[in-house]
């Protein structure tokens, strides 16, 4: 096809294409919100039913790792936001470095999560596998840790997807001159990354903080 334009035939211009892509990502995030929403609803129901058990179970979580992970994730989001800003011909290298930093922090998060899981396994806190907890709160704690593992595992899966997407963008940016198409892609991936970050902030508050106030 001669003079094939830079954008697919259903678009009028590159700008039209990029804005459409961004809208697509927002709609996708709406879907994701409801995915975690269903889970958090279940959490609320059981926390309301077993407040003391949830507090007791929450006190057994590793708040040090949780807090560190929150800081790590917020920092990585900051780096990604900077990378979006640095996405120009002149500052291409900086952009790649920032993305690499964000990826490293993301991997660190997942690693710490793994350490946390291992610790919980050793302390018999995995429901269904040799679970043991103070008898008084055993049932509520089981529900709490079910939520904990399901929610954090799904979140970690999102992290891994996000890390892969960031890696693809970083590689593209490294190898080729920036185009508007890549900018749009980076923009969408950054949105996704910030969303995953925001979800963690909710999970952090729900998992680590109950029973720790006062």
């Amino acid at each position: 096809m001669p003079n094939r334009p830079a954008f697919a035939p259903q678009y009028v211009s590159t700008r039209h294409r990029d804005e459409t892509a961004e809208l697509g990502m927002w709609v996708f995030i709406a879907t994701e919100v409801l995915l975690f929403g269903g889970l958090i609803l279940a959490y609320c129901v059981f926390r309301h039913t077993y407040p003391e058990a949830f507090a007791a179970a929450s006190r057994r979580t590793e708040i040090a790792i949780g807090t560190a992970n929150t800081a790590i994730l917020l920092t990585s989001s900051f780096l990604v936001a900077c990378a979006v800003d640095a996405f120009t011909e002149e500052t291409r290298k900086i952009c790649v470095a920032l993305l690499a930093g964000a990826i490293a922090l993301g991997l660190l998060f997942v690693l710490l999560k793994g350490v946390e899981y291992a610790g919980e396994y050793r302390e018999h806190l995995v429901p269904g596998i040799d679970f043991s907890f103070d008898d008084k709160f055993a049932n509520g704690a089981k529900l709490f840790f079910l939520f904990y593992f399901v929610a954090t595992a799904i979140h970690a899966l999102h992290m891994l997807i996000g890390i892969s997407l960031l890696a693809v963008i970083a590689r593209l940016t490294w190898r080729r001159a920036p185009t508007t198409r890549h900018r749009a892609a980076l923009h969408s991936v950054a949105l996704y990354w910030h969303f995953v970050d925001a979800v963690w902030i909710f999970l952090f508050a729900l998992i680590y903080l109950p029973g720790r106030a006062s």
């Binding site: 709406a30 879907t31 409801l34 039913t49 269904g128 089981k142 529900l143 939520f147 799904i154």
Partner: peptide
């Protein structure tokens, strides 16, 4: 877009409950 993810998470919870033998919908543990 807004309702399907809720089904998705519910189905995940069913699979978890079948695999682990305990879950959110299990009356024996509350």
């Amino acid at each position: 877009v807004l309702a399907t993810p809720v089904l998705a998470i519910t189905l995940v919870l069913i699979v978890v409950e079948r695999l682990l033998g305990v879950g959110f919908f299990d009356p024996r543990i509350g």
